[in-house]
Design a protein around this nucleic acid. Sequence first.
DNA 1: CAAACATTGAGAACGAGTCTCAGTATCGCG
DNA 2: CGCGATACTGAGACTCGTTCTCAATGTTTG
Lengths: 141, 141
Amino acid sequence: MPERTELRLTPQRTRVLEVLKAAEDHPTAAEVYERVRLAAPGIGSATVYRALALLVETGHALELNLGDGAAARYDANTSRHDHAVCERCGRAADIDHPVPDGMVAEIARRSGFTITGYDLQFRGLCPECQTAGEGNLPGRR
Amino acid sequence: MPERTELRLTPQRTRVLEVLKAAEDHPTAAEVYERVRLAAPGIGSATVYRALALLVETGHALELNLGDGAAARYDANTSRHDHAVCERCGRAADIDHPVPDGMVAEIARRSGFTITGYDLQFRGLCPECQTAGEGNLPGRR
DNA sequence: CAAACATTGAGAACGAGTCTCAGTATCGCG
DNA sequence: CGCGATACTGAGACTCGTTCTCAATGTTTG
């Protein structure tokens, strides 16, 4: 895999990376763009999208696909981890419990695919929503 | 739990369901639309999208979000299974190899979530794209 | 310094999907 | 059967997130 490692650190890219690192949540590209604009109003969306792609490519960020047809989310925590997504409030908890290598190998063997990775999200109710009962969900579609 | 149970089986909806059931692959909505048009040239895309949403809602089909901003895909096989997605051509193969219950229980215990299910997609290269080398990808952007 | 190359911002273009609207089909009921 | 209420349809305009194009600007290297 022709991994790209080098990246010219322009002011724009620095800001994108800063926003990502400061983010407590897992912002979408559009959200990153919004936040970067606060600090650098003149920046173009194309630049932010390009920067994000570059950061992912160079291993400085992860792109998460949390299903649901939602837009990809970005995460400056580049270590491998999965998520448990609350079906009620949308909160995502980090899960650090990889699928066993043996299972991946077995699936590769059966399917004929060369497996380079996987995305795994658990669905359920977070502890808060379990106790909160059937009341007030926030404005999730 | 199924909010909506009734569904009027119009000719258009019947065709959409037929196409889905006949599909060996996991067509996107746009592909379903194309195929339905072969049999019913006058049909509108809105009708197909509406029919697909309805089929998913009534439990006759599954909607797969295979990540990466790709279009949703539909599957008339409504039993639990996962997918391996080709990063090159987008094709999805069925994977019938569930995550062990023990692992799910362990994750529930550690995270405090009540886990009701999970979505798992493997990424990689399908057999065809492995042998096809770096040449001719289909019209994937 | 100058040519070669990389990066940028603006906005056009794109593709998937949704919405609106007027017309048509179907249903329920007297 | 007749008729009004309701559901469904097709066309196409529209939205939204994202990518592309391109001229301008910045940076590197010889």
